[in-house]
C-alpha cells in the first residue's frame, strides 16, 4: 500500500488513487509523424527495472492527475510529485 505524495493533499493512501501507467513521451503531431513512429509511440510504454515515471489519478481525493517516479524494485518514490505533468 503505497503512500503517494499528492501535490495538493500531501501524502495519501494508494487506495485513494488509480494508477494511470507509465508516462509516455508527449503525443506527437500526427501530421509530422510516420506510421511506424506513431505506432511505436502508441505501443511502446516504458517498463524499466528501476525508477519509472508514472501517472496516478487522485480519484478519491482532489482529482489531480499527478506524476511521480517510483522505483519498481523497491516501490520507493524517488522524486517528489508534480502536477504539471
Amino acid at each position: 500500500m503505497l503512500l503517494i505524495p499528492c501535490p495538493f493533499c500531501g501524502p495519501r493512501d494508494e487506495s485513494e488513487f488509480i494508477c494511470g501507467g507509465p508516462v509516455r513521451p508527449p503525443r506527437p503531431d500526427p501530421a509530422q509523424t510516420s506510421d511506424a513512429d506513431w505506432t511505436d509511440w502508441l505501443i511502446q510504454a516504458p517498463n524499466p527495472v528501476g525508477p519509472v515515471q508514472e501517472h496516478w489519478w487522485h480519484a478519491r481525493g482532489c482529482g489531480v492527475w499527478l506524476t511521480l517516479w517510483r522505483d519498481t524494485r523497491s516501490h520507493e518514490i524517488v522524486a517528489g510529485a508534480s502536477d504539471d505533468g
Binding site: 488509480i18 494511470g20 501517472h55 489519478w57 480519484a59 482529482g63 489531480v64 492527475w65 505533468g85
Partner: peptide, 17 residues
C-alpha cells in the same frame, strides 16, 4: 461513468494541460 471521468480529466490535465 468513472472510466469516462478518468479519461476526461486525464486528457485535460496531462494531454492538454
Amino acid at each position: 461513468a468513472e472510466a469516462l471521468h478518468r479519461h476526461l480529466e486525464y486528457q485535460r490535465q496531462t494531454s492538454r494541460p
